[in-house]
């Protein structure tokens, strides 16, 4: 299996800092912005973005975790049911500006499921999408991100793996694998 590093720890830090600046630019002074990390792989990024925004602005941004397992559209086509992760949205999303955070934007199906899932917590004023890696040309649905860490051209047989120190990796890194297994 071939693999290639797309982002290392240092570049990733710069990327997170830039994404933070973009959010601050768009949401300056806003009292109703909340961050929702998508389970399981968007939560660490969401925590880092939140911490970074707070450090820059001194503003407290509510953070939640959204699990989309029960909202997916592939229940019938999968061999096995997926294990659910915890959803923790301890605030109403009614009239909030929601920033959905995920690590990789691929087919767009997770994002569709997330849009469905978050409606259970109210009707947001606006929903934006932040992703670390945007895989171009492999979308199944008309979904695009508002904040993008890095765009990569990939084909379906490739796989992207985001490794975080928080998850036990020796350093933050994003890898591109050539594999027979598709990501979803």
């Amino acid at each position: 299996m071939q693999k290639r590093k797309i982002l290392d720890g240092q570049l990733l830090e710069i990327t997170v800092a830039r994404l933070t600046q973009e959010i601050i630019e768009n949401h300056e002074g806003s009292q109703d912005t909340v961050i929702l990390g998508l389970q399981p792989r968007g939560t660490i990024l969401a925590e880092r973005i939140r911490a970074s925004v707070e450090k820059q602005t001194g503003q407290d941004v509510p953070l939640g975790y959204l699990d989309i397992t029960f909202y997916r559209d592939d229940f019938r086509t999968r061999r096995n049911p997926l294990s659910a992760n915890q959803t923790k949205v301890p605030f109403s999303l009614e009239n909030k500006q929601v920033i959905l955070v995920d690590d990789v934007l691929y087919t767009g199906r997770s994002t569709r499921a997330a849009l469905d899932a978050l409606l259970a917590f109210g009707r947001p004023k606006k929903v934006e999408l932040l992703v670390l890696i945007d895989r171009k040309y492999v979308r199944d649905l008309p979904v695009e991100a508002n904040y993008i860490g890095k765009q990569v051209n990939t084909i379906v047989s490739q796989h992207i793996d985001v490794q975080w120190v928080e998850d036990g990796a020796s350093e933050d890194a994003i890898w591109l694998f050539e594999s027979k297994e598709t990501e979803q």
Partner: peptide, 26 residues
């Protein structure tokens, strides 16, 4: 596995919207 999954569902049935679309063609 069943008890852990039930934890997630218990949380769902205590939300204002208590329903998920998982088994919509079942």
């Amino acid at each position: 596995k069943i008890l852990d999954t039930a934890d997630q569902f218990k949380q769902i049935i205590n939300r204002p919207i208590k329903k998920v679309p998982t088994l919509r063609d079942f």
